[in-house]
Design a protein around this nucleic acid. Structure first.
Lengths: 215, 215
DNA sequence: TAATTCTTTCAGAAGTATCTAAAAGATAGC
DNA sequence: GCTATCTTTTAGATACTTCTGAAAGAATTA
């Protein structure tokens, strides 16, 4: 009856791959990610190639992408020259990594641009009275937008720091399900999730990079 | 000095468009969205074509996409046969729309699949003892994943219902900045944001659809 | 009904992204 | 150094998206 298990895994991999497209991630990359997730053990390139029917080159590229995202780690087995790839097993931690990376790549640039736009219209001197109205309205919108983005960013930071228990508390608080006081049950999580992903060395793609030495 | 205003707007439109790609939205669609946002008034197709240098067909298609997302409304001016397009001006409401739509299109299908996967491995009969371990581990992961997704969904629902004030409270609660009790300041927002977007008629793309009658 | 004005659809062009297979690059052991 | 084993890069092929321009479709007025 291991067949049911395999089918179940295959189904999740397929669907996860399809969904990847919506998230700006190539299907293959998402499939590799899912495969590592369902396998529950490190896989080598040949495993992945065989199970997903993709070429070696493609596998290599997408694995690199996943490592760059901080979602997959390279691991090695004693007496085996192959590299194995392993996924973060903690779902909360995994999504924390995704969120932080997306924020860095996608939200921060737009926040910076909003800042520049804001400066460009900071000066009201020499503007006709009827244009001032439009200017003020535009500034108001910029401020609202920036405020939204930074607030959401802060919220994510908090949520991912405090994990699922924190959210449950938050929910019950807002919905008034009951009076909840801050418990300390989430503190252990915090330290584990605080791994500094941001300090990962920024790999330059274009550079004729030396192969990663296996320390 | 209206030049600075125009340049500032153009800059935001360009950057917003670039970012659109990351969000699975075509650049033009994102640019149109941004243009409506910065303009602060309804625009017609010719306005958009002129300002973004895109063809009529492209403009039409992308505007339809935005209307389908519920991000843009069609409006009409008295004595003018043209259609005008208007964006939701409330940033929180706007992102609420995006989040809900993304959840419907992207998160719900994967949650459904997880459910199916879970059922496929529910039965443990006739499984060798050493495979049971793997099975249980797989089930644990599936459950964790589903739990994460539904919790996050609920969180978004809450956050968008309670708006920025709610988040500020949440933040101060978790960080322990001070004892906060639920205030009622956000209630007005709630009703406005509760517009039932989900009941929008599901336009079939493939169908040789009749043109939307202007009621 | 015909003319006018505006919008949508669609076939093919243009532009991107992704994939494969083959060559080049690394490392370890002999 | 040479060979074996494994990984990365790359050029070109394939597949997918997006865009345009032209034709068809709709509503309105005469």
């Amino acid at each position: 009856m291991g067949a049911a298990l395999d089918e179940s895994k295959a189904l999740l991999v397929r669907r996860w791959g399809e969904m990847g497209g919506y998230w700006g991630i190539s299907r293959t990359m998402a499939e590799i990610h899912a495969l590592l997730f369902v396998s529950g053990r490190p896989l080598c390139m040949d495993d992945i190639m065989a199970q997903l029917h993709v070429s070696r080159g493609n596998t290599s590229m997408n694995l690199r992408g996943l490592v760059d995202w901080g979602l997959v780690q390279r691991v090695h087995k004693l007496g085996d020259r192959k590299e194995y790839f392993q996924i973060d097993t903690d779902v909360w931690h995994m999504f924390g990594t995704i969120m932080r990376e997306r924020r860095r790549r996608e939200v921060e640039p737009i926040v910076a641009t909003i800042g520049r736009c804001r400066e460009m219209v900071a000066d009201v001197d020499g503007v006709a009275e009827d244009e001032k109205r439009e200017l003020r309205e535009f500034r108001r919108r910029l401020d609202e937008l920036r405020n939204f983005l930074t607030t959401m960013g802060a919220l994510f930071e908090l949520v991912l720091k405090f994990g699922s228990e924190g959210i449950a508390q938050f929910s019950s608080l807002l919905t008034g399900t009951g009076a909840v006081t801050r418990r300390e049950t989430t503190e252990q999580r915090t330290s584990r999730n605080a791994t500094k992903r941001s300090e990962r060395p920024a790999r330059k793609k274009s550079t004729k990079s030396k192969r990663n030495p296996r320390q």
